[in-house]
Simulated assay, not measured.
Amino acid sequence: MSKAPRRVGIIGYGHLGQYLVEEIENRNDVELAFVWNRTSEALAGKVPDSAVLKDINNFKERGADLIVEVAHPSISQQFGHSFLAHADYMVGSPTALADPRLESSLRSAATFHGLYIPSGAFWGGDDIKKMADRGTLQALRVTMKKHPTCFKLSGELEELNKTVTDKAVVLYDGSVRGLCPVAPNNVNTMAAAALAAHNLGFDKVQGSLVSDPSLRDWHIVEVELWGPGDVQSDRAFHCKTMRRNPATFGAVTGSATYASFLSSMLGAHSKGPGVHLC
């Protein structure tokens, strides 16, 4: 006897939300429970009327097995706890969890359903989490390099990025916790890294953001970690990877990240309560 399709609710209808909705409607193993967007008018003629959720507070009525946020970090602040009381919840904007109170609250709320963190452009997440579980992960650094037009920043970083012309500029180098609030749309990869490397967390995982005008067609993510051994004498386990992701000029999200996110959504089930990388 075949299982009933898993019902998925989508929060947000930007580029990624549109991609997920289209993929869900073309599959037999999942079905669309609802789509909510800040402006419901944007869904008219694109999403079946029966799937449009006009009031996000009524999400419970749609019986979703999994709720996927691809809208804004504020959604987890406002509704994450409620979502987890009724369904598995996949946080598409994990920069929200750089707020230590929210991270603690959602970890505590994930007692009946799973809190899922998509790996996105974060390469090697499962291996890093295994090292964190064993307490052998000593340090982790994530460097993200993009064209200046690909960044959505605020404050001093936004002003610094405006000065980039012909040479690469390091916009930020420091803790991931300090970066997430000023670049919430760009550093979800770093937030996923900080959650996977839970023995280090947002304060000890280091992030570097580089604005490079030569990267018109690519986003680059470098992940470097140190494990067992003596880091000071350079006799510790060390691994460095580079992910070069094709990207449309000016796009915040690289092309390959869409398929990765779909895989994460399809894998976000059956792991039970707690926090899971997917």
Rank of each mutant, 00 (worst) to 15 (best):
V68P: 15
I128S: 11
G80D: 00
V91M: 01
I67C: 03
A110Q: 03
A64F: 07
V91Y: 00
N57G: 15
G124F: 08
D55P: 05
A64Y: 15
Q78C: 10
N57Y: 12
S105I: 11
T111F: 10
E69F: 11
K60N: 14
P48D: 04
S104R: 11
S40K: 11
L115R: 02
S105R: 14
Y89G: 06
D55K: 07
A42S: 11
H81C: 06
P94C: 06
P48E: 01
D126E: 14
L102E: 05
F79H: 10
F34T: 05
G45N: 02
D127I: 08
A87H: 05
S104D: 09
H72G: 14
S104N: 01
T39C: 07
T39S: 14
G125M: 09
S105P: 02
S74R: 12
A33H: 04
F83Q: 01
P48F: 08
L43E: 10
A42C: 07
E103N: 03
T95I: 01
R38C: 07
A64Q: 13
I128G: 14
Q77L: 15
K60S: 15
P48K: 07
S105N: 13
F59L: 13
L97T: 00
A33N: 09
L97F: 01
A98F: 00
A64M: 12
G80T: 03
G80V: 06
A109F: 08
M90E: 07
H86S: 07
S104A: 06
G80Y: 03
G124I: 15
A64G: 09
S119Q: 12
S105L: 14
R62H: 12
R107G: 01
V68I: 13
A98H: 00
H81S: 10
A33E: 02
S93L: 04
Q78N: 03
I75A: 09
